[in-house]
């Protein structure tokens, strides 16, 4: 690996968390020393642990509870080039009333759209939007040249500020994987800090920042662990696995390793960081495995929308089918849920 030594002593943005943890030395070299000093991941052990957690059997009342929990943790997502205001409206309708046949079905946590669809989502949500009370449905927008992140910093910041100004409650940003893989951790760090600042609203509050690591492009568990630390140090409120546009997207071992970072951070500072696996989670069975992994790694207190989310679209229909099966006692079919 070639490292640009000219940048080595370059100062990086003095984010509060980094100042505390790196001990006042916020240079690229200090950051690199810290990240590369993190012990490597035992890949076999990690995969074995994830596989063991996936064998847990969740049945009857626990399953019913798990299904409702999953729905309340979903970021219902549409991120297609072909998105229209009408598509966003139908997505919002589904977010508000997931199962029209059963009004007791919980609502999802948020809808996740491209930045230019935020006004359409807000308008469609109306009073169901999470206001100051925070008990409604939030609007999340992807920003920073999603999904590739290949744009200059001013463009990324404008993209973010635009979505925040339009009223997005949460911003899902992508890190610059190219810079990360080239070893320019400081550049990635600075970008996250700058985007966090762009999330600031005129009244001084911040839109929630989710940092997408795109683990499918990071290649190793060691990189995932480093990127997780990096994102948290730079001020991310959530760390998110994937854009959903790259395969492999979220996997259980990757999510487990990110949860371990979050657990370590909590032990270190007492601060709670959220985790969002996204992409590739299509069945209730898979989603329940994630719930088990969260509960066993960071604790059940993480199983609420402020700290854990599923980025998914087709998952909701499968959960609804399972929910109908649990309630009626017979198998349901795709004719009994809406077509997305």
């Amino acid at each position: 690996m070639t490292i640009n030594t000219q940048d080595h002593g370059r100062a990086i943005a003095p984010a509060a968390r980094a100042l505390d943890v790196l001990g006042g030395e916020t240079t690229e070299a200090g950051l690199r020393r810290y990240l590369e000093g993190i012990p490597g991941v035992d890949a076999v052990g990690l995969e074995q642990r994830a596989a063991a957690l996936a064998t847990r059997s969740i049945k009857t009342t626990s399953k019913a509870r798990a299904l409702d929990t999953i729905i309340s943790l979903i970021d219902l997502t549409t991120l297609e080039g072909a998105d229209t205001p009408g598509k966003v409206r139908s997505l919002v309708a589904k977010a508000v009333t997931p199962d029209a046949a059963d009004p007791t079905t919980p609502r999802v946590a948020a809808v996740c759209v491209y930045g230019d669809m935020v006004p359409a989502a807000l308008q469609a949500l109306g009073s169901a939007h999470a206001g100051a009370a925070g008990n409604g449905i939030a609007v999340a927008a992807v920003a920073t040249a999603f999904p590739s992140g290949r744009a200059s910093l001013p463009v990324k910041l404008a993209d973010t500020a635009d979505a925040v100004a339009a009223g997005a409650d949460e911003i899902d940003m992508v890190i610059d994987r190219g810079a990360f893989l080239a070893g320019r951790y400081g550049q990635v760090f600075d970008q996250i800090v700058a985007v966090k600042e762009a999330c600031r609203r005129p009244d001084g509050t911040y839109a929630h920042l989710k940092v997408i690591l795109e683990t499918g492009e990071l290649n190793t568990y060691d990189n995932v662990r480093r990127a997780s630390w990096l994102a948290i140090l730079a001020g991310g409120d959530f760390i998110k696995t994937s854009t959903g546009k790259v395969s492999p997207a979220a996997t259980l071992p990757v999510t487990l390793s990110m949860l371990e970072v979050v657990r370590d951070w909590h032990r270190l500072t007492g601060e709670k960081i959220g985790v969002k696996p996204a992409g590739g989670i299509r069945s209730s069975k898979d989603a329940i495995r994630y719930l088990v992994t969260v509960a066993e790694t960071v604790g059940e207190q993480w199983l609420r929308p402020e700290l854990f989310r599923f980025g998914a679209s087709s998952l909701l229909n499968d959960v609804l089918l399972q929910r109908q099966k649990t309630l009626t006692g017979h198998y349901s079919g795709p004719d009994y849920v809406t077509i997305d």
């Binding site: 198998y331 349901s332 079919g333």
Partner: peptide, 9 residues
Amino acid sequence: PWLAAHADV
């Protein structure tokens, strides 16, 4: 009985 009640049959 499971097949008879199955909504996707």
